Amino acid sequence: MTSTLPRTFCEAFQQTAARQAGLVALRTVGGTRSLLWSEYADRVRALAQGLTALGVRRGDTVALMLRNRPEFHLADTAVLHLGAIPFSLYNTSSPQQVAHLLTDSRARLVITEECFLPVLNPYVSALLVPDPDALTAFGARHGLDGKPGELCRHPAVLAAIETGLAAANSVLSRPEQVRAHTVITDTWQPGSDYVTHTRKTRRTPIHQHYATQIEAMYTHHTEHTATANAGTGTGTR
């Protein structure tokens, strides 16, 4: 009996899934999660139906901004089954780089995770975490009492932060400027849930813990922009 060679990637995928239905197709590092080929094919079919319902068609481009997880392969394969073109966005890309790639590729859809939503928003926002030692020194110079968390809410401190932010924005290009910010009264110490020992921020736990504040920055900025445009007789979409 001779087998028919697959003519396309999708045909090869379906043949493999049927032939090796009970074997593991995808497995996470350490084996904490795994998918059989039959499960892989079922998930791809369901995702392809969902993407079709969202308007993805043959020839469309679909961006994927996901970490190294099984869902990346599920989404990637589902997009290919529709004759669409998947492409990856680097997780370390800046909002400006992401915006350029999405515009240049004319992506119809982005498949991503919640932790990357701030990068996909159309402007830069910032959670500002003042250094507690700097706050204490500022308070001593200006005769202000209180702990660092209390000083963060003092009008004089907030005014100084606004001045510093304006100075930083003045040397940045317009797309790089911080359009909205929130001052955080918590202290982020190296080695904590939010900052590594080498002082790199931990994006996922930060977004999970401060999701309400992050969303509020974008909501407030959008409402403010719409109000300003209404006052000048222009509109936004």
Rank of each mutant, 00 (worst) to 15 (best):
Thr185Pro: 07
Leu54Glu: 08
Leu66Ser: 07
Ala160Leu: 00
Ile85Leu: 15
Asp133Leu: 10
Ala166Pro: 06
His81Met: 05
Leu128Ile: 15
Leu151Glu: 04
His73Tyr: 15
His100Tyr: 15
Cys152Val: 06
Leu165Glu: 01
Pro175Gln: 04
Ala156Leu: 14
Leu151Arg: 03
Leu135Gln: 07
Thr112Arg: 03
Gly83Asn: 03
Asn121Trp: 04
Thr92His: 12
Gly83His: 09
Cys115Ser: 13
Val178Tyr: 07
Asn169Ala: 06
Ala167Val: 03
His81Glu: 09
Pro118Leu: 13
Asn68Thr: 03
Ser173Leu: 14
Glu114Ala: 15
Gly164Phe: 03
Asp60Gln: 05
Arg69Phe: 00
Asp60Phe: 05
Asp145Pro: 00
Thr52Gly: 13
Ala167Leu: 05
Leu101Met: 14
Gly55Leu: 06
Pro86Cys: 01
Leu172Trp: 12
Val129His: 06
Ser125Leu: 10
Ala168Lys: 01
Ser105Gly: 14
Asn68Pro: 00
Val157Cys: 05
Glu162Ser: 12
Leu51Val: 02
Val183Leu: 10
Gln177Tyr: 01
Ala166Asp: 13
Glu114Pro: 04
Pro148Gly: 11
Leu151Gln: 03
His154Gly: 05
Leu89Ala: 07
Phe116Ser: 01
Val183Asn: 12
Val129Pro: 07
Ala166Thr: 14
Ser125Asp: 08
Leu102Ile: 07
Ser94Phe: 14
Val56Phe: 04
Val98Ser: 11
Val171Trp: 02
Val171Pro: 00
Glu114Ile: 12
Val62Met: 00
His81Ser: 13
Gln96Lys: 13
Ile85Tyr: 14
Leu127Thr: 09
Gly149Trp: 01
Val124Ile: 13
Ala166Gly: 04
Ile161Gly: 05
Asp131Thr: 10
Ala159Val: 03
Gly50Ser: 00
Ala126Tyr: 13
Ser173Arg: 12
Tyr90Trp: 13
Gly149Met: 03
Arg153Asp: 10
Thr103Gly: 14
Pro175Asn: 09
Pro175Thr: 09
Ala166Lys: 08
His81Asp: 08
Gly55Tyr: 02
Thr52Asp: 05
Arg108Thr: 15
Asp76His: 11
Ala99Phe: 13
Asn169Met: 10
Thr112Ala: 06
Asp186Pro: 00
Thr187Gln: 12
Arg179Tyr: 09
Val157Asn: 08
Leu144Tyr: 11
Gly50Cys: 02
Leu117Met: 15
Asp133Thr: 10
Gly143Leu: 04
Asp60Ser: 08
Thr136Ile: 15
His100Trp: 14
Ala166Phe: 11
Arg67Tyr: 10
Asp104Thr: 12
Leu135Glu: 06
Thr187Leu: 08
Arg141Lys: 15
Gln96Cys: 11
Glu71Val: 07
Tyr90Met: 12
Gln96Ile: 13
Ala134Ser: 13
Arg174Met: 07
Leu64Gln: 01
Pro132Ile: 10
Glu113Phe: 15
Ile111Trp: 01
Pro118Glu: 03
Ala167His: 02
Leu51Thr: 04
Gln97Ala: 15
Ile184Ser: 06
Pro95Thr: 14
Glu176Met: 08
Tyr90Asn: 14
Gly149Arg: 04
Ile85Gly: 05
Glu176Phe: 07
Glu176Tyr: 04
